[in-house]
Design a protein around this nucleic acid. Structure first.
Lengths: 230, 230
DNA sequence: AAAAAAAAATGTCAAAATGACATTTATGTT
DNA sequence: AACATAAATGTCATTTTGACATTTTTTTTT
C-alpha cells in the first residue's frame, strides 16, 4: 500500500496577512495578483505549499520573497477551505498573520510583486476570501495584543511611549489615558529607558525606550492586560 | 486555464482532540486505528476531507460519526503539515479540539470505532504526530479556559459548584481556594441556582446550578479570569 | 530675552478586585 | 444523640484599577 487510493487530493496554499506600523498608522501589505484569474487585483501575498515543504516554512518563504525579511513574528491563524473559494481549482489555504517593523522592510523594498502598504482602514476589496482572512487577522491581533506585548513586534528597536500608545489606539480604535497606560507599561518591566530623545515628533522630544529582551521572552505568554475590557 | 497545473496536490485530513469530563477526571476520547499502517494502534479520531467539503464540516462529520452528537463545541486548533507526518503519503491535517458532555455521549455509545475514554494523564502514545496535537490542545484549553467559561461545555446541563471546581483543578493541575473561586464564579453572573441538590457526591448535598444562557453568550468572549496567573 | 505654544511626563485618590485565611451549616451514618 | 463529611459562607489587608489636572521641557515667536 503506497497511497490512500480513493481519496481526493487538493492544492494547499498559504496566505500572509502582513501588518506594519509607520509610527502613525496601522497598515497592511498587499500585492497585485500575478496570475490568472483576477490578475492585477489586490490580494494577500501567498503561494502554494511545495512538495516536501512544511506549510509554516512555505509561509516564511513567501514572506521572505516579498520582504527580504527573516525571523519575522508570524502566527498561524486558521484554515480557509470553503470548497469554491478559489474558482480555478479546489485550494485550501492556511492564513498566517505577520507583524513587521515597517522601517526594516522599507530598506528591502522590491517591486517584483507590485506590493503596497495600505492603511488598514483603506484596504480595498481583495480577491477570493482574502477579506475574511484580514478580518480574522484583525480580530486575532486585537485579542492577542490585549494580553501579550505582541505589538512591539511592529516597532523599531528604539521607540517612544507616545508611539506605542498611538499604535494601541490604532489597533483598538479607542483613546487611551496616557497616565494609566504608561503606569501599566512600566509595571510590566518590559521597557528600558534610553538617554536620548526622539525629536521628530514634538518640540520637547520623547525619550526612546528599548525592549528588555529577557523580560520580553519571560513575560510574553503571561496575561498583561494592556487594554481595559476590550 | 482550468488548473494551476504545475502544483503539488496533497491529502487533507482532520483530526479531533475530544475532551470529556465525568465529574472526577478529564478524559480524552481515542480510537483504535482502522486502517493500515498502524492498524489497531491508538489514534485520534480523524478522516479525510472529501470533495466539495469544507474542513470544518469534515471535522463535524467525523465527530458525529463517532459520537452521534451534533452542535458540539469545537474549535480549529492548527494545521499539522510536516512532510512525512504520515508515512504512506503526504497528508496535511487540521486539528480540532472538541469539548463533550460525557453523559450525553455515553447514551450514544457506538462500538464501531473501538473508541475509549482514557484519563488524560494515562493516554498512551498515539500514532503519527497525534501526541503533539494533544499537547497543543491541552495548551489551548488551558489558555482558553483561563479567560472564557468554555469548560462549562464539558458539564451536564445541571452541575454543582464542587464539580466545576474539580474540573478547573484537573485542567490546571492546581488546588483552588473554594471561597475565592466561588466569589469569582458568582461575579460572572453565569450561574442560576436551582432548588434541588446533588446528593451523589456528599451527605450534605451540593446545590445544582444551570448556566444562564443569555449571559453565557454575552460574556463568552470577554476576559473573565478564572485562574489567577496561570 | 521674554512670552507663547506644543507635546511629554508625572501624581493622587477613591473604588474595585484580589489573595489569604477559618468557621458554620446541612445531612446521613453510627 | 453524637459523629463524620463535605458544602457554604465572610473578613480583612493588599493590590490594581480608573478617573482626573498640573508641571516640565523645548522650540518658536515676538
Amino acid at each position: 500500500m503506497a497511497q490512500y487510493s480513493a481519496q481526493h487530493r487538493v492544492l494547499i496554499a498559504v496566505d500572509c496577512i502582513i501588518f506594519g506600523f509607520d509610527g502613525a498608522e496601522l497598515k497592511l501589505l498587499v500585492v497585485q495578483r500575478a496570475l490568472e484569474p483576477q490578475i492585477g487585483n489586490w490580494s494577500l501575498m501567498g503561494g502554494f505549499v511545495e512538495e516536501g515543504e512544511d506549510p509554516n516554512d512555505a509561509a516564511s518563504r513567501v514572506l521572505y520573497k516579498l520582504t527580504g525579511l527573516k525571523d519575522v513574528y508570524m502566527e498561524q491563524l486558521s484554515v480557509f477551505g470553503r470548497p469554491n473559494r478559489d474558482p480555478v481549482e479546489r485550494t485550501i489555504s492556511v492564513a498566517y498573520s505577520a507583524l513587521i517593523n515597517i522601517k526594516e522592510y522599507e530598506t528591502q523594498l522590491s517591486d517584483a510583486y507590485r506590493a503596497e502598504w495600505i492603511p488598514l482602514k483603506d484596504v480595498p476589496a481583495l480577491i477570493f476570501d482574502h477579506d475574511e482572512m484580514v478580518a480574522a487577522a484583525k480580530v486575532h491581533l486585537r485579542y492577542k495584543a490585549a494580553l501579550h506585548p505582541v505589538l512591539f513586534e511592529l516597532l523599531p528597536e528604539k521607540f517612544t511611549i507616545p508611539q506605542i500608545m498611538v499604535l494601541y489606539e490604532q489597533v483598538y480604535n479607542v483613546e487611551l489615558d496616557k497616565r494609566n497606560f504608561m503606569r501599566k507599561l512600566r509595571s510590566t518591566g518590559l521597557l528600558v529607558k534610553q538617554a536620548d530623545k526622539d525629536k521628530e515628533g514634538s518640540r520637547k522630544g520623547a525619550f526612546y525606550y528599548k525592549l528588555d529582551q529577557e523580560t520580553y521572552k519571560d513575560k510574553f505568554s503571561s496575561f498583561l492586560h494592556f487594554i481595559p475590557q476590550p
